[in-house]
C-alpha cells in the first residue's frame, strides 16, 4: 500500500502518520503542499497540525494549495482519503466533506484522551472494528466543534455517515463528555461514496502500547486490507 502523506507548512503529525503506515506494512511517502501530482498512490492522508498557523480559518489556506487539486481528483475517482485533525479541517474547507469545524465551545485547546463509539463499521476505514467496540485515543485541537446545518446533520445520520462519536463514562454520549461542543457529539464523518473520511481524534497516536492505546491500529489495518484486496481483483 503506497500512501501519500501531505505535508503543509505547519503540519506536525506527518511523521507520526509515516511511522504508523510503516507499522501496518504500508509504504508511506511524503508529498509537499506545492506538489501538483500525487503520482501512483493507493491512498492519501492529510496529517494533523496547524497548517498556515490556522490563519483565516483552520485548514482554509491549505485547502487551496496546489496538491489539493490532485487530492480532489483522486477522491473523485474513488481513491481513499483520510484526514486527521487539521486534515479533517482541510477536507471540510476543500468541500470534500460537508460542514465545518468551529472553535471549541470551551474556547480552550483540548488535549486529552477520549472514548469513541464506532458508529459505522462497514467502511474501508473501520471494517475491522466490532460495532460495539469503544476506542480510546487522544484529541489535541482548538477547533474541533463539528457544525453543519440541520438538513446536513439529518442526512449524515440517516445515511450512517457519522463514523465516531464522543462517549461519556457510561458508554453514552453526554454534553459533559463532549470535548468541543460538536453537533450530535460527532468526532468523525465520511462522504457519500465512502472513500473520504475525516476525524478530529488521532488514531495514529494510538498504535503502540507505549502510547497508552492501540485502538487506532485497526483503522489503518482496515484500509490496508481493503487496498490489498482490491489489488488482487
Amino acid at each position: 500500500m503506497k500512501v501519500a502523506i501531505i505535508t503543509f507548512p505547519g503540519s506536525n503529525c506527518d511523521y507520526d502518520l509515516y511511522k504508523c503506515v510503516q507499522l501496518v506494512g504500508g509504504n508511506p511517502e511524503f508529498l509537499w503542499h506545492r506538489d501538483s501530482s500525487l503520482g501512483k498512490v493507493d491512498a492519501v492522508m492529510l496529517p494533523g497540525g496547524f497548517s498556515y498557523g490556522d490563519y483565516l480559518r483552520a485548514g482554509a489556506i491549505a485547502a487551496m494549495s496546489p496538491i489539493m487539486a490532485a487530492v480532489k481528483e483522486f477522491a473523485d475517482h474513488g481513491g481513499p482519503v483520510l484526514g486527521i485533525c487539521n486534515g479533517f479541517q482541510v477536507l471540510c474547507e476543500a468541500n470534500l466533506l460537508p460542514g465545518a469545524l468551529l472553535p471549541n465551545t470551551s474556547l480552550l485547546f483540548a488535549s486529552k484522551e477520549v472514548t469513541l463509539s464506532v458508529e459505522n463499521n462497514s467502511t474501508i476505514f473501520t471494517d475491522l472494528y466490532e460495532s460495539d467496540r469503544s476506542l480510546r485515543m487522544p484529541i489535541a485541537h482548538a477547533e474541533g466543534n463539528y457544525y453543519a446545518d440541520e438538513e446536513t446533520l439529518e442526512r449524515l445520520e440517516e445515511d450512517g455517515r457519522v463514523m465516531f462519536r464522543y462517549l461519556g463514562p457510561q458508554g453514552k454520549p453526554t454534553n459533559e463528555s463532549n470535548p468541543n461542543g460538536s453537533a450530535n457529539h460527532i468526532a468523525g464523518i465520511i462522504n457519500t461514496k465512502g472513500n473520504v473520511m475525516g476525524m478530529m481524534p488521532h488514531p495514529e497516536r494510538a498504535v503502540e502500547t507505549i502510547l497508552g492505546s492501540v485502538d487506532g491500529l485497526d483503522l489503518f489495518k482496515s484500509l490496508l486490507n481493503h487496498i490489498s484486496a482490491s489489488k488482487r481483483v
Partner: peptide, 9 residues
C-alpha cells in the same frame, strides 16, 4: 465565496 468566508458558518 472562494476563500475568505466559509459559506457554512
Amino acid at each position: 465565496q472562494r476563500l475568505l468566508a466559509n459559506p457554512v458558518t
